[in-house]
């Protein structure tokens, strides 16, 4: 088996995640789909690292994880405050520029 299969898997996971972002209305699930896309990218980076024989790809994946953590913290805080004001976690409910 060639490691390129990992790349196919990453592409598939990324596409599934992106589609999930588009079709789900629950903000938390949307967030999870974003995480899925990030993880698919990480897999691709790690695979590239292996294929190139250096660790730069792993470093990028590491940074991606850190940034994803930061993003999740802020994003979940936003979801919580949104839920407080609207009593709903649906992204479609926030379609107007007012409460």
């Amino acid at each position: 088996m060639n490691p390129v299969n990992y790349l196919y898997l990453a592409a598939l996971l990324f596409t599934i995640g992106a589609t999930g972002v588009l079709v789900r209305r629950n903000a938390i699930v949307v967030f999870m789909c974003v995480e899925l896309m990030l993880n698919a990218c990480n897999l691709a980076f790690v695979t590239f690292s292996r294929m190139h024989g250096n660790l730069d790809g792993q470093i990028i994946a590491f940074f991606t994880m850190v940034v994803a953590a930061a993003e999740v913290v802020v994003g979940l805080a936003i979801i919580v405050s949104l839920f407080r004001t609207r009593h709903s976690a649906s992204v479609d409910d926030a379609s107007l520029m007012k409460l």
Partner: peptide, 13 residues
């Protein structure tokens, strides 16, 4: 310009 973030996301995608 319907205000739905998901519509905009489709455009981006």
């Amino acid at each position: 310009q319907n205000g739905f973030a998901r519509s905009y996301a489709v455009s981006m995608f």
